[in-house]
Computed example of a mutant assay.
Amino acid sequence: MSEAVARAESAAVWAARLADGRLPVNRQAEFEAWMAEDPRNAQVLEEIVDAWRSVEAYATSAPIMEMRQAAMASANRAAPRTRFWRSAGMLQACLAATLVLTLMGAGIWNWLQPTLYETGVGERRVVVLADGSKISLDGDSAVAVSFGRKSRELWLEHGRAKFDVAKDALRPFSVTAGDKVVVATGTAFSVERMKVAVRVILYEGHVAVLEKVGDESRAVSVAPRRNEAPVLAERALQPGSELVMPAGLVASAAPAAVHVSEIDPVQTLRWEGGQMVFVDEPLQAVTERMNRFADNKLTIDGPRTGDLRISGVFHAGDNEALIQGLAAFGVHARKNDRTTTLSLAR
């Protein structure tokens, strides 16, 4: 068997496995090793997926259904009598036919199923992607990744991650967090998905910031200064600054709800080393971040408590130190096996 045929067969097998959904951990490691083994592996796999995509629109049409039924009947008739493949060509033809039939029923073009990188509570992780880009994941965070010929698409499912993007002007690098999309070609930035907001910090380079509204994407604008028109977020967001957008479909339509502020880049990255730095942050946001490193979760009793502004430096997961510090502000803690509820004295 030639190297090209072996490569095509391996790619088809991986495509079929990916069609079944997200790979188990052991298979994912094996798949990543196969992809890294030779750049031609990814190319062949993508060619197979492109071919399947091309027939997707016709998968249930009458002529295709007839072909599927005839091919299945032929395969069933031949199965009892056939023990060996007579040639590599026949093997490839039968494999291709079987895969098309399988994929039309199972939707393999979801190879398409992105690769998920995640961390558990109290865990941090750094991932280097196939293009050389790097993801630094905070605790209890997850990022799904899908690379193609023309784009590099990522989805921040929850938590926070910093992205060091390898330069590739022909393949934009986009990170989607809920209905917000950050697009770059080569830069460094972080995205944090919180309960009430999406936060973007730009460390170097330039990014565009969009909001998905149905099938369309709109550029997000920032609250204007006095007597000035709204400014596009991508212009307002400069290296060393943070963009805060409310969760939900309001950012593009209501610039007043979006704001940009200067930050200390070094301090904002101390979470990568296990320290949490808060500068005039609402307690609601503080507890959400601290909870990524603690099994006993902090909860807030009412908006008055959640709006309390907090500044300080804490070790990730050291909720007891935070509780002790909050006592000076009149915040009481009620603890049970799973949660600790914080409330301001009446």
Rank of each mutant, 00 (worst) to 15 (best):
G148W: 08
L129M: 06
L101H: 14
D301N: 14
K335G: 13
P239G: 03
A78G: 11
A4Q: 06
A219E: 11
S10L: 04
H332A: 15
V266C: 10
D264H: 00
V258R: 01
M35I: 12
M290H: 13
V55D: 06
E288V: 08
L210S: 07
S252T: 09
V198T: 14
R125A: 01
V183P: 03
A106P: 05
T176R: 15
R292Q: 09
T98W: 02
Q92A: 10
A254G: 02
A19M: 04
Q238D: 00
V196C: 00
A16K: 01
T287F: 00
V286Y: 04
A51Y: 00
R7Y: 01
K297F: 08
Y58W: 15
V277W: 13
A254I: 06
M276G: 01
L137K: 13
N26L: 05
I323F: 12
N41H: 13
G312W: 02
D38L: 03
A321G: 08
G274P: 04
N336F: 09
P24D: 02
F278V: 04
G159Y: 09
D295F: 01
V244N: 05
P265L: 01
V198S: 03
W52K: 01
V266K: 01
E234I: 03
A345F: 14
I108P: 00
S343I: 08
S136Y: 13
S343W: 11
L322I: 15
L249K: 11
M194T: 01
A4W: 03
N296E: 03
Q43A: 12
V279W: 06
E272G: 04
R152T: 13
S311R: 03
T287C: 02
W271H: 02
A96L: 13
T299L: 00
A177V: 11
A333N: 09
F147C: 10
A51K: 11
V213G: 02
A188I: 04
A130D: 12
M72Y: 10
G105W: 11
M290E: 09
D38W: 06
G120H: 02
L210I: 01
H158R: 15
A71C: 11
V13H: 07
S241Q: 08
F293E: 02
D280H: 05
P63R: 11
E153L: 15
V250F: 06
M104V: 08
A97H: 10
H158W: 13
A36H: 05
E281G: 07
V220R: 05
D38T: 07
D50M: 08
D337H: 14
A327P: 08
E288F: 07
S146H: 15
A188L: 06
V213H: 13
S252P: 05
D295H: 12
E30C: 00
Y203G: 01
V143S: 06
G214K: 00
M90W: 13
A11I: 00
D264M: 06
F293A: 09
D215H: 11
N41G: 01
R17W: 10
E262L: 07
G240N: 10
G205D: 05
V165I: 12
V55G: 04
V209W: 07
S146M: 14
P239N: 03
S146V: 14
K150C: 09
R53T: 10
